[in-house]
Design a protein around this nucleic acid. Structure first.
Length: 231
DNA sequence: GCGACAG
DNA sequence: ATCTTGTCGC
């Protein structure tokens, strides 16, 4: 099977861009989803400049309680280059996903989905590589323009680029910076917004992201105490 | 040529 | 992403 961990070895930025242009044509922006029972938060943190740590936390959509999780560590393959983030994070993410006992129905990844210069942000790339439905949940903008976002929870405005709507700038909570939501794979923008809001409680970030962030960033291993037993 | 630029 | 505590405001 295609293994980015080895196949992306010594990839030049130019080659990575070509790969993105090919893969982008495989992204599905229509709803092609199973019944969503579980959602997973996906995030990557760095122990230092050489080691990346991916954390995946699976939550039951009904009550947003964690039912499984996995962590993976790998040497960082390449430096951070805006637009090429997935080549840095996908390898570790795939390893962590493979360790899960319960495969999630939907992934909520840190970063962009199709709201990317070549329409292939980490969420889309992860979706293509795993075949799983995915949503991009970015804390800041990579590309695209938009008007002011009303200051009401749930309010959003389209994020556009080159004449097309590539995502939504969503106010998950009143009085906070909005989030950049975009389809990753096998999901439409309206449905993506729906599921992100379904994972939001009283904070700016959806619970999926909060759990994954807490574990991936090394601090708060206190979070682990609340996680279920693994078999 | 001059900025902008997910994590 | 990461270095880092308390503090101002709804």
């Amino acid at each position: 099977m295609y293994d980015p961990t080895s196949d992306w070895k010594d990839l030049t930025p130019q080659q990575a861009i070509q790969l993105q242009q090919q893969s982008a044509s495989q992204v599905i922006t229509r709803d092609d989803l199973p019944t969503i029972t579980t959602v997973a938060g996906v995030d990557v943190g760095f122990e230092n400049r050489d080691i990346a740590r991916a954390a995946i936390v699976v939550l039951r959509l009904a009550d947003l309680k964690p039912i499984d999780y996995a962590i993976a560590r790998q040497p960082v393959p390449m430096p951070y280059i805006p637009g090429l983030l997935s080549f840095r994070e996908c390898p570790v993410i795939l390893e962590a996903l493979a360790k899960l006992d319960r495969k999630p129905d939907l992934l909520l990844c840190d970063g962009q989905g199709i709201a990317h210069p070549r329409r292939l942000g980490v969420a889309s790339h992860t979706g293509i590589l795993t075949g799983l439905p995915a949503i991009g949940v970015g804390k800041s903008r990579l590309t695209g323009t938009h008007g002011p976002v009303p200051d009401d929870k749930g309010a959003w405005v389209p994020l556009e680029d080159k004449g097309e709507t590539i995502g939504a700038v969503l106010r998950t909570r009143q009085g906070v910076k909005p989030l950049y939501i975009s389809p990753g794979h096998r999901i439409s923008l309206p449905t993506a917004i729906h599921y992100v809001m379904a994972c939001v409680t009283r904070y700016r970030l959806p619970e999926t992201t909060r759990w994954a962030d807490g574990i991936a960033s090394g601090r708060g291993w206190k979070w682990l105490d609340q996680l279920p037993e693994r078999r």
